[in-house]
């Protein structure tokens, strides 16, 4: 296991490097002059040229890339275009709020999706399963921001049960922080729950078709043993893999939720950067977001290797 972990970690380095190339090339391949785009079409040629000079955009691409990537290991992500602030501390300051919302949302999604999906899978084609299929597909089709708006209006504004928008750091006032967390986390959780539920159902159905489940029955094992040790154990491992592959997609909804509830996470920072067309900020945040997803993928793979003895062989 240790050797496997080291091996995977070692492979992660070229992957991150590849990512930096992809992000860099991809942003520079997009046609149009970024500086012109940032300052608008009305800006004078001299001004644009001056800015290009200032940000080093007039240098060859390779030089720009080397300059950019050499700062990365030290945590230097460059500076923003408008306020000329270092990007790294800006992003870093947003991490606690983003992480808190992501974890809370995932937790709720798991609480909603996992039991219902497992039950639907175990009782395939039962009335519960049909109900689950329709509801989960409807939930799956639900725009996250719409769901959030409805919850916000219903619980936050009409009933005044919960604060509908805003944020207080946990360190400042834990109770208030959690009150503010409820609505965005529930929206995110209810949005993701159906995905997790459908993945769980598919994993359980797949496991149920395995011969070892049938053979476990032939051995006369108790239903509880068969379900726990032969169906769920295997289904959860394959669910973990699917989950790892889709984690990036699952959490992209968070950007919308942060915007909707004025939750000061990294997502809002990125949306603002996009609206302001802050080229450097977009480049840095896409890189950071994607690295985080790659890191989560790696974690999931290691966990998978730990749980499934067949993996390390390859």
């Amino acid at each position: 296991m240790l050797r496997y972990t080291l091996y995977r970690l070692l492979l992660f380095v070229p992957l991150l490097w590849g990512l930096s190339v992809v992000v860099f090339v991809y942003i520079h391949l997009i046609p149009g002059d970024p500086v012109q785009a940032m300052v608008g079409a009305s800006a004078s040629q001299e001004f644009v040229a001056q800015l290009r000079e200032e940000f080093g955009l007039n240098r060859p691409l390779l030089v720009q890339y080397v300059d950019w990537i050499s700062g990365l290991p030290a945590g230097d992500l460059g500076i923003t275009f408008r306020s000329r602030q270092p990007i790294a501390p800006l992003l870093l300051a947003r991490i606690p709020a983003t992480l808190q919302l992501a974890l809370a949302g995932l937790l709720i999604a798991l609480l909603v999706g996992l039991p219902s999906g497992i039950l639907a899978g175990l009782f395939k084609n039962s009335p519960f399963d049909h109900l689950f299929s329709i509801l989960s597909l409807a939930g799956y089709s639900m725009p996250l921001f719409w769901l959030g708006t409805l919850l916000m209006v219903w619980l936050g504004v009409s009933w005044k049960v919960l604060p509908s928008q805003g944020y207080v750091p946990f360190t400042q006032d834990p109770l208030k922080n959690l009150q503010y967390l409820v609505l965005p986390a529930v929206s995110l959780g209810l949005g993701l729950g159906p995905y997790i539920g459908r993945m769980a159902r598919a994993a359980v159905i797949e496991a149920l078709q395995e011969q070892y489940v049938n053979y476990a029955h032939a051995k006369g094992l108790r239903m509880r043993t068969v379900v726990n040790r032969y169906v769920l154990r295997n289904a959860m491992i394959s669910l973990l893999v699917v989950f790892g592959l889709n984690i990036g997609f699952l959490l992209s909804g968070q950007i919308v939720i942060e915007e909707l509830f004025n939750w000061p996470g990294a997502g809002r920072l990125i949306v603002r950067a996009v609206l302001e067309r802050d080229y450097f900020m977009i480049q840095a945040s896409v890189l950071i977001y994607a690295s985080i997803f790659l890191a989560i993928n790696l974690l999931v793979e290691l966990l998978h290797a730990y749980l499934d003895p067949r993996v390390q062989l390859k």
């Binding site: 395995e210 011969q211 070892y212 032939a218 006369g220 032969y230 295997n234 491992i237 003895p309 067949r310």
Partner: peptide, 24 residues
Amino acid sequence: MRQVRGRRIAMVVQDALAALNPVI
């Protein structure tokens, strides 16, 4: 019936690999 299976009537299958849980 469960108490009959595995205790009074046992089964040996063709594809032993598929009949064994890979992660236990």
